[in-house]
């Protein structure tokens, strides 16, 4: 029984990791209708920059602020240099461009810092509490709290502010938005910038747990995509909930389902996603778009 609850907590902890990347992916999708496969690697690059600043003696809070701003600029830069030129092209072209970003940023981190894993400075105090034999760490709770605030903020901005409305409109249909007077390009730029910063926050949250390395975010990508799909690509809160569901399902399933076991645990997020999609095709919190024929 204790094992069950321990695995539940472990699942929430892993789920928080998946949810963090999922949040960044959902943000960029909501703002630009593009799934950026390179999001994780861009986040890793920012995390490395923060780590490097700390190594050079800059206090951690300041490093996070500096790199947070820098990652916003990185997002804008990537948008203007790479995405804007192909924005009129088909989805497939953009997919390959984002894959190119994936390869590029991972190789960049590898080249600059080598393949060894590093310790990322922790933002939350270590240690935790032992509740009836189940161990809960302070960092897990901290990460969940930060993600909750982030998701709520994102959701609120998109739903309740004019800026959010403008961003959503630009993503949905750039021509019609231009007609209405929205500065589409600026909205897209903002979207990429915010997404990059969110990605950095995600990487900073999970870095201490995952150990900073050029391939840190790679195994997470599939789980993050599944989480976002599960929760609905329209909803930041959905990404968070989706991540937690995936984490818990995977943690419990890997241990208590012997025919899956820990080596086939990657099947679980897919199976869970599939089941939920078959029941509710837009994801748990997604909103279905009504298309006029």
């Amino acid at each position: 029984m204790v094992l069950f609850f321990q695995l539940l907590i472990d699942g929430l902890a892993s789920g928080a990791i998946y949810a963090s990347l999922a949040l960044a992916l959902v943000l960029i999708f909501r703002a630009t209708r593009i799934v950026n496969f390179g999001q994780g690697e861009m986040a890793t690059l920012s995390a490395y920059c923060a780590w490097q600043l700390c190594e050079w003696g800059v206090p951690i809070a300041l490093s996070l602020l500096i790199v947070g701003a820098a990652s916003f600029l990185l997002g804008v830069l990537v948008f203007r240099a790479v995405i804007k030129p192909v924005s009129k092209a088909s989805t497939e072209t953009v997919v390959v461009v984002t894959l190119g970003l994936f390869v590029f940023f991972q190789a960049l981190c590898l080249w600059l810092w080598g393949a060894d894993q590093r310790a990322f400075p922790a933002m939350f105090p270590g240690g935790g509490w032992d509740i009836l034999g189940v161990r809960v760490t302070a960092s897990t709770l901290g990460i969940l709290l930060v993600l909750l605030c982030l998701a709520a903020t994102m959701g609120a901005i998109f739903r309740f502010t004019r800026l959010g409305l403008a961003m959503r409109a630009s993503a949905y249909s750039s021509e019609k938005s231009l007609l209405v007077g929205i500065r589409v390009e600026r909205m897209l730029m903002l979207g990429w910038g915010f997404a990059a910063t969110t990605g950095f926050i995600a990487a900073a949250l999970v870095g201490p747990r995952l150990f900073l390395s050029p391939t840190m975010m790679m195994p997470i990508l599939l789980y993050a995509l599944a989480s976002a799909t599960l929760g609905g690509w329209d909803s930041p809160l959905g990404a968070l909930v989706g991540g937690l569901i995936v984490g818990v399902a995977e943690s419990l399933g890997a241990t208590f389902l012997p025919f899956i076991g820990a080596d086939l645990r990657v099947v679980i997020p897919i199976a869970v996603t599939l089941v939920i999609l078959l029941v509710r095709p837009v994801g748990l919190f997604g909103s279905s778009t009504v298309v006029k024929v």
Binding site: I220, T255, R265, V266
Partner: peptide, 20 residues
Amino acid sequence: AQPVTSADPTVETQLSTLKA
């Protein structure tokens, strides 16, 4: 005995099971 794949994001699950 718990298996680990190179694609696992974390191995917390396996470790908790081993501890138990």
